[in-house]
Simulated scan of single mutants.
Amino acid sequence: MSPLRVGIVGTGVISRAYLGHLDNHGRDGGLALTAVADLDPERAAKAAAGRPGVHVRTPEELYAADDVDVVLNLTIPAAHTEVAHAAIAAGKHVYNEKPLALDRAAGAEVLAAARTAGVRVGCAPDTVLGSGVQTARAAVAAGHIGRPVAATAFFTTPGHEVWHSDPEFYYRPGGGPLFDMGPYYLTALVHLLGPVTAVTGAASRPTDRRTIGSGPRAGHTFSVEVDTHVTGVLTHASGALTTLLMSFDTHAAHLPRIEVHGTGGSLSVPDPNGFDGPVALHAAGTGEWRQLPPTHGYRVAGRGTGLADLAAALAAGTAHRASGDLALHVLDTMQALLESAATGRRVEIRTECAVPDLVPGLVG
């Protein structure tokens, strides 16, 4: 198949990971980078440097370009929907960094616009397509833990200002531990246990200001506009219950990333912010954990694997796995958790999504 031609809008920190994957595995994965754009032209020029055939354009020029088939939207969360709508209006497919949008209504509008235009929407995270979560999912599907009944999911850190030189956007709408890291965990949980039907949540914001800890702006303080400690219980359509904790207020913890518990055993799932990692099974009655060999997922995976999966799906006429529908369901679940925290009531999830197909064996 001809490579899907990619134009990147937003060449900040996360673009480095995507650019590295495209450099090493782009054409093998059916992708060809042709253009980059950023509000800072110098930053865009740095991204294009040393990459033959990659043009520096304004965002408007990139949307209109004949050599761009899909817009890879790596802007900050507050700009995700604006860029997605511009790309769709130009007849381009779009692949967003997470989250899909700042709220479910805006996310639904992006998907509706794409359906009208006849283009596709993909969205990170694609880490769940690596051998870690896919091997764990295959083990659950094979019945190795019996019927799944519960899961735990924990993300704990003191906050991104410890290491990031420009961390303010993590503490504005679209950020916080839930919207920043929650998509990795919630997307993995949908793969493992199916969609969510209702949530009960609680949240807090222990401090209204944070201090940058590294880089040229170290010592600078800024305001916190979102809750930084979010916890809750998710009810899945399968009947399984997940206990979730997402925190920027935890300095140290001995908590698993994700564990899934069933009637016949327990499964330890690796960090969903990575593509691989050990999957361990504790079958009932064995008294020990046993590491499982990788069995499913993309072997050569990195940021952009979901975009390559979209390219392959377009060529085959099948559904892509890192889909807009899944991203909207995750967004709906996150928003519902915050609504539940604010009201003290259980909140029903409004959206539905199909569980993406399991990656068939080890691919690539």
Score class of each variant (00 low, 15 high):
Ala17Gln: 10
Pro173Lys: 01
Arg210Tyr: 11
Arg345Val: 06
Trp289Ala: 09
Gly10Cys: 07
Arg172Cys: 01
Glu339Asn: 14
Val230Glu: 06
Arg299Gln: 15
Thr286Gln: 14
Ala150Gly: 07
His21Ile: 04
Phe275Glu: 02
Gly130Val: 02
Thr221Leu: 10
His160Tyr: 14
Ala188Val: 06
Gly29Arg: 00
Val199His: 11
Leu33Tyr: 10
Glu339Ser: 14
Asp23Gly: 10
Tyr95Met: 14
Arg120Tyr: 02
Ser131Glu: 00
Ala78Arg: 13
Thr75Phe: 03
Asn96Val: 10
Ala283Cys: 03
Tyr63Thr: 02
Gly201Phe: 05
Ala237Tyr: 03
Thr250Tyr: 04
His254Ile: 12
Ala252Thr: 12
Met334Ile: 07
Pro158Phe: 11
Thr197Asn: 09
Gly20Met: 09
Arg51Ser: 08
Leu19Lys: 11
Thr286Trp: 09
Leu255Arg: 12
Arg350Asp: 15
Glu168Cys: 01
Ala35Val: 04
Tyr95Thr: 08
Gln335Leu: 00
Phe222Lys: 07
Ala141Gln: 14
Thr200Val: 13
Gly7Gln: 09
Leu244Ala: 08
His85Thr: 06
Gly159Ile: 09
Val330Arg: 00
Val347Arg: 08
Thr197Tyr: 04
Trp289Lys: 13
Gly264Phe: 06
Ala90Cys: 10
Arg346Ala: 07
Ala327Met: 11
Phe155His: 07
Val94Phe: 06
Arg205Trp: 00
Asp40Gly: 10
Gly159Pro: 06
Pro195His: 08
Arg350Lys: 11
Ser131Tyr: 00
Val36Lys: 04
Ser340Pro: 11
Ala17Pro: 07
Thr34Ser: 14
Ala44Trp: 01
Val9Leu: 09
Val224Asn: 00
Leu244Gln: 04
Cys123Ser: 06
Ala341Gln: 05
Val359Leu: 05
Thr127Asn: 06
Thr263Ile: 05
Arg257Val: 09
Glu42Asn: 12
